[in-house]
Every structure is written in structure tokens, then in C-alpha cells.
């Protein structure tokens, strides 16, 4: 019976994770400019792959696999904001501007410092 519970839990994690990945890619396709697309890709995308890794760990039901999956999830949660921030900072300082219906540009007075 415990293996049935594990299987149902795995199924739930798999479905939720793939749903998050789908939401992330729809956001990537539909949102108007680079900086808002970054929200979809780096939050929902990380959530989706993390949940799927956790599903694999739950399915294996093994301490070593669980530790590795947890390490992987923590790694993704650490690196996704870093890479998104690096890309956004590079794009903004090079001169890619916000979309036409953006309301407010907080970085407008911080003129690009390192443009060379």
C-alpha cells in the first residue's frame, strides 16, 4: 500500500511539474518584452524542472537518489536567479529597452555605466 501512495505522489508531482513547464513556455511566448519574459522562464521554468526532479527522487525511494535530486533542485534554485539577473543586467546596460506598454523604468536614472 505504501508503494501505491508513492506512485500517486509521483504522478501528482509529474503532472504539476509539467504544467509549470507549460505555463513557463506560454509566458515566454506571450509576454511582451524581454524583461517580463524573464519572469516566466526563470520562475515557472525552474519550478517545473525542480518538481520533476523531486518526482524522480520520490519514485526511486532511495536516500542517495533523494539527496542528489535535492542537491540538483537547490542548485537550480540558486543558479536560475543568478543567470536571469546577469542576462537582464547585460541586456539593459547594452541598451535593450522595456516594451511599449511598460509603466515604469526604475533604472532610467542609472545610466548605463559600463558600456564599453
Amino acid at each position: 500500500m505504501i508503494s501505491d501512495v508513492i506512485m500517486l505522489l509521483t504522478a501528482a508531482f509529474v503532472l504539476i511539474g509539467s504544467f509549470f513547464a507549460l505555463v513557463a513556455s506560454i509566458g515566454l511566448l506571450r509576454l511582451p518584452d524581454l524583461y517580463s519574459r524573464m519572469h516566466a522562464a526563470s520562475k515557472a521554468g525552474t519550478m517545473g524542472s525542480g518538481l520533476l526532479l523531486i518526482a524522480l527522487a520520490v519514485h526511486a525511494a532511495d536516500a542517495g537518489v533523494f539527496a542528489r535530486a535535492l542537491a540538483g533542485v537547490v542548485f537550480f534554485l540558486l543558479t536560475a536567479p543568478i543567470s536571469a539577473h546577469l542576462l537582464a543586467k547585460a541586456a539593459y546596460s547594452v541598451g535593450y529597452r522595456l516594451g511599449p506598454n511598460a509603466v515604469r523604468d526604475e533604472m532610467a536614472d542609472h545610466t548605463p555605466a559600463e558600456r564599453d
Binding site: L34, T46, L53, S83
Partner: peptide
């Protein structure tokens, strides 16, 4: 950004294949 998202989706795909 699309390539980054593609990597994330590929990780999910690999996990699903693993299950």
C-alpha cells in the same frame, strides 16, 4: 532566454523519462 528555458524543459523531460 529561450535556450535557458529549453534546458529547464529538457531537465524535466529527462526526469520524466527516468520515471
Amino acid at each position: 532566454l529561450g535556450l535557458d528555458m529549453l534546458v529547464a524543459a529538457a531537465i524535466g523531460f529527462i526526469a520524466a523519462i527516468g520515471i
